[in-house]
């Protein structure tokens, strides 16, 4: 089978589209979650801390810690999971600090995102890439 130059280009473009399609879909799920939390407000980059291992030994149980002094809520997202939501911590009047630790699932190497609603009503975002390793022989 022979392809003309034009046909080849079209096929190439179509293939590229197929490969890249899931990306905007995923990005929009993350964007949607952020928009729902922030109402579309701008996000600063200070005032929220996210601690996660650089390399996770197993994606099934990855320890993370978030904190944001005075924040009313912190939302955590895993941008590369099938659904990006992880948890939203809403801090009450008796929270001793706006800080929490938990253990999360990461489907693969990806960015973990924490967005805090700060005391003044503004939003701040922190992001960390976590590499998830694949086990040895699968045992």
């Amino acid at each position: 089978m022979d392809f003309t130059r034009r046909e080849t280009l079209v096929i190439g473009a179509a293939a590229a589209a197929v490969v890249t399609l899931p990306m905007p879909a995923m990005a929009s799920a993350v964007d949607d979650a952020i928009a729902a939390f922030t109402g579309g407000a701008d996000m600063g980059d200070s005032g929220v801390e996210l601690d996660a291992p650089e390399i996770a030994e197993n994606g099934n149980t990855v320890p993370i810690e978030v904190s944001a002094e005075g924040a009313s809520a912190i939302m955590v997202l895993a941008a590369g999971n099938p659904t990006p939501g992880v948890a939203t911590f809403n801090f009450g009047p008796l929270a001793g600090a706006q800080r929490a630790k938990t253990r999360i699932r990461l489907a693969g190497t990806q960015d973990v995102i924490a967005i805090a609603k700060l005391a003044d009503g503004s939003f701040a975002k922190a992001q960390k890439n976590v590499k998830v390793t694949i086990g040895g022989c699968g045992g």
Binding site: T61, T83, T88
Partner: peptide, 20 residues
């Protein structure tokens, strides 16, 4: 209220929380 957490499926088996 101290803390009120909305949890998604990305929270690990045997959910663990530490807070103040």
């Amino acid at each position: 209220s101290v803390v009120d957490v909305k949890m998604e499926p990305a929270i690990s088996t045997n959910p663990y929380f530490e807070f103040e």
